[in-house]
Design a protein around this nucleic acid. Sequence first.
DNA 1: CTCATTACTTGTAATTTGCAAGTTATGTAG
DNA 2: CTACATAACTTGCAAATTACAAGTAATGAG
Lengths: 149, 149
Amino acid sequence: MEHEPRELLQIMARRFGLLNKNCCSIGNNDISLIQSHILYEIARQHQPSMQQVADTLGMDITTFSRQVQTLIKKKLVKKTPLPEDRRVYILSLTVEGTFVTGAIDQMMNDYLEEVFSFMNDFEKETVMRSLKLLNDSMLKSKMCCTPMG
Amino acid sequence: MEHEPRELLQIMARRFGLLNKNCCSIGNNDISLIQSHILYEIARQHQPSMQQVADTLGMDITTFSRQVQTLIKKKLVKKTPLPEDRRVYILSLTVEGTFVTGAIDQMMNDYLEEVFSFMNDFEKETVMRSLKLLNDSMLKSKMCCTPMG
DNA sequence: CTCATTACTTGTAATTTGCAAGTTATGTAG
DNA sequence: CTACATAACTTGCAAATTACAAGTAATGAG
């Protein structure tokens, strides 16, 4: 059975996406997949602006703006004006947002731990290194994988 | 720099998703990301039914039904009643659909080839094997990555 | 024949989306 | 200091997407 890179990546990305989709209902909060991505990036980046997160996710800024409004209504995200440049808003998680984001992360990692349980330590290590290598290579590529393509 | 499995996968899946998103405009046809996934799966599966493809993609069948209608209007997909069970429709690509799907595939593979060009043969081989292993493990997992979670 | 089930479609209403056009703030040129 | 371009973000709006509920048509089971 011949496997092209695209096929392997397509199926993996899809499976991971489905996993991600299923991880979004935490307690009372019903979080959409995109919202979970936004939370994840706010947690990961250091005091990001709206534009930064939108770019990272390859989202239209207007769509992003409205999604952030929703997350603020849910009391998961906070928007702070940047003193040095008052056009800019800095995004951060509220206490509840941190909790929800952490819970999603926990669930994802539990699931992934199960996936990795089918491998031995050597395989695990190899897979992790491969993913890192792939990510680095994607970053190096000019035409690939950036929001503007 | 410590990397969790989730972080690596999340970023990779996102980058691949963005790549996929950018690959969808072929000639006059403006194909959405979801439509490109549908085309891909119809090409990949052997005479799939609607339900089969919808399940593979983890999509609601009613949403899927309408997306297929759109693709039929665009003359990219054909729906054929199955003689043995007339509730079922078999999906296939039209000539134009095959062309468009092939063009998208070509573009994706060109991009990925560039990504892999940053690796030597051994690394390439390792990465491919790792992806295969990861896919297999995801398939083995019960709780992970299936449409129903 | 009846009734449950499966595969798929349509009604409908809510959500999401992105372009265009706006506001406000910053930087730059004269 | 006064334009004027640009950047960051928001809103208007119309179109696309979504999913639940309810429908049709075909199959299968009792």
